Simulated scan of single mutants.
Amino acid sequence: MRKSADWMTIWDDRILEVIRDEGSGSPTPLSEHDYIHISASQVSKRLKKLSEHGLLEALGNGIYVTTPDGEKYLDGELAVDDINGHSENGDESAQV
Score class of each variant (00 low, 15 high):
Met1Thr: 10
Met1Lys: 11
Arg2Gly: 12
Arg2Glu: 14
Arg2Thr: 15
Lys3His: 14
Lys3Gly: 13
Lys3Gln: 15
Ala5Val: 12
Ala5Met: 05
Trp7Arg: 04
Trp7Ser: 10
Thr9Asn: 09
Ile10Gln: 14
Ile10Thr: 14
Ile10Cys: 11
Trp11Ile: 06
Asp12Lys: 00
Asp13Pro: 02
Asp13Leu: 11
Arg14Lys: 10
Ile15Pro: 00
Glu17Cys: 04
Glu17Trp: 10
Val18Ile: 11
Ile19Leu: 00
Ile19Gln: 04
Arg20Gly: 13
Arg20His: 07
Arg20Val: 13
Asp21Ile: 15
Asp21Tyr: 09
Gly25Asn: 01
Gly25Ile: 02
Gly25Pro: 10
Gly25Ser: 03
Thr28Lys: 00
Pro29Gln: 01
Pro29Met: 00
Leu30His: 06
Glu32Leu: 02
His33Phe: 11
Asp34Lys: 08
Tyr35Asp: 12
Tyr35Lys: 10
Tyr35Phe: 12
Ile36Cys: 03
Ile36Trp: 09
Ile36Gln: 04
Ile36Val: 06
His37Phe: 14
His37Met: 15
Ile38Trp: 01
Ser39Tyr: 00
Ala40Tyr: 04
Ser41Ile: 09
Val43Arg: 04
Val43Lys: 03
Val43Phe: 08
Ser44Glu: 10
Ser44Gln: 09
Lys45Met: 11
Lys45Trp: 14
Arg46Val: 09
Arg46Trp: 01
Leu47Asp: 06
Lys49Met: 13
Lys49Leu: 13
Leu50Glu: 01
Leu50Pro: 00
Leu50Ile: 09
Ser51Pro: 05
Ser51Leu: 07
Glu52His: 14
Glu52Ile: 15
Glu52Met: 13
Glu52Pro: 08
His53Arg: 13
Gly54Tyr: 13
Gly54Gln: 08
Leu55Glu: 00
Glu57Thr: 14
Glu57Ile: 11
Ala58Val: 03
Ala58Gln: 03
Gly60Tyr: 01
Gly60Ser: 04
Asn61Ser: 05
Asn61Ala: 00
Ile63Gly: 06
Ile63Lys: 00
Ile63Ser: 04
Thr66Gly: 09
Thr66Val: 08
Thr67Ser: 05
Thr67Leu: 08
Asp69Leu: 05
Gly70Ile: 03
Gly70Asn: 03
Glu71Lys: 12
Glu71Thr: 13
Glu71Val: 15
Tyr73Ser: 09
Tyr73Gly: 05
Asp75Gln: 10
Gly76Met: 02
Glu77Ser: 02
Glu77Cys: 03
Leu78Cys: 05
Leu78Trp: 02
Val80Gln: 08
Val80Asn: 07
Val80Met: 07
Asp81Ala: 14
Asp82Leu: 00
Asp82Glu: 09
Ile83Thr: 10
Ile83Leu: 08
Ile83Ala: 09
Asn84Lys: 12
Asn84Val: 12
Gly85Ile: 05
Gly85Cys: 02
Gly85Trp: 04
Gly85Lys: 08
Gly85His: 07
Glu88Asp: 15
Gly90Asn: 15
Gly90Thr: 15
Glu92Phe: 08
Glu92His: 04
Glu92Pro: 03
Ser93Ile: 07
Gln95Trp: 05
Gln95Ser: 11
Val96Ile: 13
Val96Tyr: 11
